[in-house]
Design a protein around this nucleic acid. Structure first.
Lengths: 193, 193, 193, 193
DNA sequence: GATGAATGAGAGTTCATTCAT
DNA sequence: CATGAATGAACTCTCATTCAT
């Protein structure tokens, strides 16, 4: 399995660095190869094409969000708390890797239609986990039982996303994680029963 | 003034159509010219370069949102109602011009760093108007007086944006405008005093 | 006759100014029109095309050299003196109009093959007059009667031309006319009987 | 080093051929690539851009003149003889490669200001060598010790250049090398003590 | 005569991908 | 496995010239 070989991760990480530092449109395959310390052609031993690198970046990094979130889901706690941990985890991961935050919030959004569709496919898995929390909260009576779950999901994810993007566009100059409780409180107010 | 000549608008509208139908990266100047029914060179009598066309698309179309919003702001009504009209207007405009919705939600986000910064400048004017509503609501006691206004703005805009993008990515297959009241209600719950 | 109308000369002079100040490749027809204070289309009432403007610049300005030279030729004086007056006149004219010196020595030489051939046709008329001096000098015994007249012409014109070009490329920072006697003396030594 | 790879020279020579046969303004990169038998993109592995090709043509070919001239300078012989060999060598090189003579005398002079300045830099190295001969001759008493060395250089180079250009413009229809002794004799007469 | 808006052909350069070594 | 030299398609913008007014 290619994914288990060390060069696979090395190339993925090189891609994140190169995209963050040069921008999506200046992230040529040759630059990624150089950053990874391999020849251009070697990239194609591990990835089908350039798009495949980018999808893989997203897939690999997405587990940083989902692994923790799945642990949270398995615990016994109110949906509200689970939501809180989800937001905090999300903000934590991006605070810890600013290159990654630039890549996910700004650069990868410049990708073309096809790639964005594929990225959305990966993202959907994450949103499904969010839906689990929302459903739990509605069933337990914590959240408004009449709310439109898709709308709620869009509010939660849209608010988080917009908050992070604003933070990135302000050059990370304030503490994102500190905003988590406020974001949580406001969203909870909107969804509370 | 170039902007008052009919060809200026014709080219802008041609650009929206071409970008929506072909995608940002397949929207060559020659295609826009053909769609507009003018020669390639004519484009450059009205626009400095290709980026200038795209900025102008955004500026021109943004007035569809702001003109109405400014009327709303001048009336006497509760901030909650103003917010409701804002959301409805926003959804109305994009429902009425699906090409435009594709362009603003998907295609223009693929533009390069420079162009996105300029687009953000234009967008900021709109967000300032949203802030006016939020401040009014907080002063009148309708909205939570302790809420972080930037966070609230990010929730409102992030939710609207995510809602619209989801709708566009689902090929406009349901009625966006019908979602406005629900979106409004949920956001209001989150911000209410 | 177009050439007698005032706009004809106005356009010619505008062309010299524009070429000298912007360089050959930046001397667009529209710039020349603007400098001349006429519309782009008006240019084409007086000149067949852009090349025709440039040829005409050369033809018109060439008379500054030939008119005086023909006067000189008609006088009774040794060929050596005629040569001296020719060199002095040539240097005088270009010292008096530095724009023109830039145009003839540097800019017009960037023109394409066709145009250069036509310019050479005009120049040939001038070189014919030089040949007259050389022949006179050979017949009178002032100049070496065995010299190759074409070679002598190339030496005289080549030396003058190189001297002027060097002066232009040094930003006219010394007095060209003061060099004339030295140039004359040296050339005469080379050709003397 | 790129310059040592065979393709470097192949492209240079292809450029000379294409420029000579098509003219400077019709010498597209794609034509040069085709003539060289490589892909368009390959050109850019060896040269920064089109201007870099042209500079390199000049630099490489200039060594045809300077290498021999430097040998001549190192020998013990009268300055007059050195000058003679210089002229002969110059004429020899261009007689042997008529394409090159078209390129240096006609086509490359159409280049833009920047390129011409760079070419002048290369040319200056050659003129410095000519100055060495002139100084030697003046010190040994062979040449007029009062002559202005810059003027003498302009006469020598101007005469050679004009002679060659005339020959090229007459389609090389006579023997250039046979003119060398006459040119030398005439120039020597002009400079002799 | 004069205008100037409109035309449209034409070329340098980048970069993802391949494949012989 | 790894290399990296070579490939070649693709697109914005300029500007001389025209012609309806």
């Amino acid at each position: 399995m290619k994914k288990d070989k060390p060069k696979y991760r090395i190339i993925i990480d090189a891609a994140v660095t190169v995209i963050a530092e040069n921008g999506y449109h200046q992230a040529q395959v040759s630059k990624i190869a150089k950053q990874a310390g391999v020849a251009d052609g070697t990239i194609y031993l591990y990835f089908k094409n350039k798009e495949d690198i980018l999808i893989s970046v997203f897939e690999e990094k997405m587990s940083l969000f989902t692994d923790k979130l799945m642990e949270i889901l398995e615990t016994e706690m109110p949906a509200s708390d689970k939501l809180k941990f989800m937001i905090e985890n999300h903000f934590d991961v991006l605070s810890a890797d600013r290159h990654l935050s630039i890549v996910t919030q700004l650069e990868l959004r410049q990708s073309n239609h096809d790639l964005r569709m594929k990225i959305n496919g990966v993202l959907k898995e994450y949103l499904v986990l969010l839906d689990v929390i929302l459903k739990e909260g509605m069933e337990s009576g914590e959240f408004d039982q009449d709310m439109d779950i898709r709308l709620a999901r869009q509010m939660v994810f849209g608010t988080m996303d917009e908050t992070i993007t604003t933070w990135v566009m302000n050059d990370h100059k304030y503490d994102l994680v500190r905003l988590a409780p406020k974001v949580h409180r406001m969203l909870m107010k909107g969804m509370r029963a």
